[in-house]
Design a protein around this nucleic acid. Sequence first.
RNA 1: GGUCGUUUGGCCGAGGGGCUAGGCACAGGUCUGCAAAACCUGCUACUCCGGUUCAAAUCCGGAAGCGACCU
Length: 296
Amino acid sequence: MKRLVVIVGPTAIGKTAVAIRLAQHLDTEIISCDSRQFYRELNIGVARPSPEELSAAKHHFIACRSVSKPYNVFEYEQDALSVINLLFKSHDNVIAVGGSGLYIDAICQGINIMPDPTPELRTALSSKIKEGRLDDLLNELKKLDPDYYDIVDRKNPIRIQRALEVIYTSGEKYSKLIDKTLPPRQFKITKIGLHCERDELKKRIYSRVDAMIATGLVEEARSLLPFRNLNTLNTVGYKELFYCFDGKKRLETSITEIKNHTWQYAKKQMTWLNRYKEINWAERNNFQNILQVLGQ
RNA sequence: GGUCGUUUGGCCGAGGGGCUAGGCACAGGUCUGCAAAACCUGCUACUCCGGUUCAAAUCCGGAAGCGACCU
């Protein structure tokens, strides 16, 4: 049976290096599972693999999109799956690597099919939220889909909006649509979680941020200023610098914030990883251990 | 040395006799199409000493720190 090796772990732990080494070892290619590395305009700030790294092993879904044409999980899942299946025609193993939990789940478990809302509907709903009429939307949701109303995070506007978008465009209950069991994948999945000590990861994050600044993150961010209102630019490493360009913050402050926010991001990634019961943990440096897990 | 002002949690900051804003940071958590996003929970401080009061972070007196001005 074909096998997808999924390498996960918090940001800056060294997933890229492990994935490349493993790709070379298994003579295969890499599917990136990083929701920010999709975008060609984002490079330094999202720690995109270097040209050397990219040529050391074939990567898919790196810099394949523009920030002005964002991906969504469903579209990504479709695309990723077809690439994976294509690769399985000539390879026994394919590697997936990345830090975006939702996207990893989409690859591993799939995601229910739901219709896309029209931009008009989306705008209409989000402007209601901006006007502070979340309660109206909640009442609407309560009426249209009481089951989801019961379980939804009622303080999270994005969740409410999403549910209503789906309900309005599909004419069905959101809770019904997400309830459908997804067919299992036709390939084996082995998840490997990279681990290291907390303080070490923190240090790695901090010094990676310093390295990003040294290699031109500020200039990269400045060039993206025209896109600052796009959601894809609501990203650690850029948003902090935008405030700095406004003169609202000093560069030093922004850099510290990037470090802190990246660390917080890493912690949130861990809470996502905690749901993977079947994960195989390995120390970040222990490649032999990874090979063992894979039975190599 | 004198006068005036100021002193609130790790940081910023509002309030101003009883019910202790808020933000950031930090810690923990949630997650089925914007996910490096969004959201939730926790974190009860008012410089010190004395006084007034049933009750003081809040009023009064003093001390200390800080700031401005004066000599």
